[in-house]
């Protein structure tokens, strides 16, 4: 028996949903109408979640809609917005710094997201080991995620110092001259990518939850069948962890498109050297609050939103080929 046979072929979300409603009564015309008690419960329920509903409406939906509207205007934040049609979008697609910022962000995303997934998965597996001191390991592996981004940035500045930093000391051992990684347009991006990996503990916790959700009986069956640990990983762990992987992938892409803090601190908000660390959000921020061009900044935000949405949809579409929802806690 193959291990994958045990798991069964990948199925879409529909199968999980249908499994979940097997015991529920089939919907009827009568059940759709609510009686007085149900309506009261509905009102109470809505009242209890109303802070969240109000929060989403006021702090997410309204700003998004307002930002979309502003993107068609010239607006400084002070005087009434002036309608400019699609001018801001035309400018965005011809602005050389938008291209530079987008390519920097893409560079970051292409490396940081897969690297982050691998590191967090490895961390999660290490945190899931059946050893007595696992609680210590979990704390140690997660601890770097608790360091605020600004503190982490300063640590990296010292770490990469050409004269005193560990990085250059190691380089010197091999006879190399001191380099300032933060002074090189590509080097600074790589430094920021490495910096981001110290926050892998958050994604690792989600992976850990996924790992602990995989029934042990499957591994036992695999071991009986003589599957090696590597085979178990690729045939059990990886497929059954795929929904979690999808979640971390999408949040990772979303986060990488919005990379800002580390680059802002390391470069003092300039994006230097040679715009090497000018990420999309930094340029957007500069336009909004440095140049008071909120209309243009809104257009940049809408473009980012659409790109993020398109990437998320693409990942969802691709996920049909690799995501397996058939696991249930054992």
């Amino acid at each position: 028996m193959s291990v994958t046979d045990t798991v069964g072929p990948p199925a879409g979300p529909a199968s999980a949903v249908s499994a979940g409603v097997q015991t529920a009564a089939p919907p009827t015309r009568r059940s759709r109408g609510l009686n007085a008690g149900q309506r009261r419960k509905l009102r109470t329920g809505l009242l209890f979640i109303s802070p969240w509903i109000i929060g989403v409406l006021v702090f997410i939906i309204y700003p998004v809609v307002y930002s979309i509207a502003l993107s068609f205007t010239r607006y400084s934040g002070m005087e009434a917005p002036t309608w400019v049609g699609i001018q801001n979008y035309v400018t965005a697609f011809t602005d050389p710094l938008v291209g530079k910022a987008a390519s920097n962000t893409l560079f970051y995303a292409i490396i940081a997201v897969p690297l982050g997934l691998i590191i967090s998965l490895v961390l999660a597996i290490a945190m899931n080991q059946n050893v007595r001191e696992v609680a210590w390991y979990r704390t140690i592996f997660y601890a770097p995620s608790l360091i605020p981004a600004f503190a982490m940035s300063f640590i990296f500045i010292v770490f990469l110092n050409p004269q005193f930093g560990v990085f250059n000391r190691v380089l010197n051992l091999f006879g190399g001259a001191n380099v300032n990684l933060l002074g090189d347009p590509t080097g600074v991006k790589i430094a920021i990518i490495l910096m981001a990996q110290l926050g892998a503990g958050n994604a690792a916790l989600i992976f850990l939850a996924g790992l602990r959700n995989i029934p042990k009986t499957i591994y036992e069956a695999a071991r009986v069948d003589g599957a090696s640990p590597l085979r178990q990983f690729f045939s059990i762990t990886f497929p059954l962890l795929s929904p979690v992987l999808l979640f971390n992938l999408i949040t990772g892409i979303s986060g990488s498109l919005q990379v800002f803090t580390e680059a802002f601190i390391v470069t003092n908000g300039t994006g230097d050297p040679d715009n090497g660390a000018l990420f999309y959000m930094m340029y957007l921020y500069k336009n909004a609050f440095g140049f008071a061009e909120l209309g243009y900044a809104s257009a940049l935000a809408v473009i980012l939103f659409l790109v993020g949405l398109a990437l998320a949809l693409l990942v969802y579409w691709l996920s049909r080929r690799f995501v397996n929802y058939d696991v249930e806690a054992g």
Binding site: I157, V158, L160, N161, P162, N180, L182, G183, V266, N268
Partner: peptide
């Protein structure tokens, strides 16, 4: 060269 001058400043007068 800028890169060497930059390494000099990062060494003796790092940002912040």
């Amino acid at each position: 060269p800028y890169s060497r001058v930059d390494a000099f400043f990062a060494t003796y007068q790092p940002p912040n």
